[in-house]
Design a protein around this nucleic acid. Structure first.
Lengths: 141, 141
DNA sequence: CCATTTTCATTTGTATACGAATAATGGGGC
DNA sequence: GCCCCATTATTCGTATACAAATGAAAATGG
């Protein structure tokens, strides 16, 4: 069948379904975290905990966020007192980010809630299906 | 292992991976469509073609868009001359949306490019994997 | 037929998301 | 030491995305 004649069903397109699944995940995340932390703010904190002190642009690269996006995320985390900024002694362009004491103190609880959101999101799938889904998604990054 | 002690790896969380996959899809969509049409604008047009004339809120529900989101999308499609709005004779609250002649004339080409974006996105997977992925994602909506 | 409830559309505010442009700084080659 | 290029951070503009509130109009129930 030629491309022109093949019927197009929005509901069958992977991009559209991905948006629906992402929406459900965001909704489940909001149900656990409330207004306290958004998924991207959570990701930035989790990554900053993993890698330790790093620059804003590097944190953005490590969390797949544009320089403009990571700036806003970091600004809001600093406003909440969860992330701190210090000058880099060896490079006047950059400032070094790290978790504040308050931010670091939340990490264990955040990890626990993060696992819970993942469990909520994957709830419709059994163990084998979860493994298969993650393997397939990883091929598409 | 208790929740508290289980290690947390951002890269293993389905929500984070979903964001990466969605980003790649958006990038592939942009490569095909350029600045002409965004994924959501495309979805609104494809759905409007499927269901024919309908109200703005109904189009939003059928494309999984909030009332505030669909309003912006429709406004921009109307500004481009792809969608037209007429008053509903039987209900003064709502206005009926439909594709303009220009919008309807683009549908065949849009479908073709939509299929191409889907193909680009699924390119890393073989036929069986594509089928499995869509089946798994559909369980999670 | 009137009061309660729903629905439609709009608006406001906040938070991603990214392209593009800019200024300041750093590093490499020569 | 100096020029070119890369990197850092910021800013602007546009486009989702959604909660919440509003006003108008329709549907519903007694």
């Amino acid at each position: 069948m030629s491309d022109e004649a093949r019927p197009y069903h929005l509901d069958d397109q992977v991009g559209y379904i991905l948006r629906l699944v992402s929406q459900r995940h965001a909704s489940l995340f909001l149900a656990r975290f409330g207004q306290d932390l958004t998924p991207t703010q959570f990701a930035a904190m989790a990554r900053l905990d993993e890698v330790g002190q790093c620059s804003q642009n590097e944190l953005g690269r490590r969390t797949a966020m544009d320089v403009a996006t990571i700036k806003g995320v970091v600004d809001r985390l600093r406003a909440k007192g969860l992330v701190e900024q210090t000058a880099d002694p060896g490079d006047k362009r950059r400032s070094l980010l790290s978790l504040s004491a308050a931010g670091a103190g939340m990490i264990a609880a955040l990890h626990q809630m993060g696992h819970a959101v993942t469990e909520d999101t994957l709830q419709p799938l059994n163990a084998q299906e979860r493994q298969d889904l993650l393997a397939l998604l990883r091929k598409m990054v």
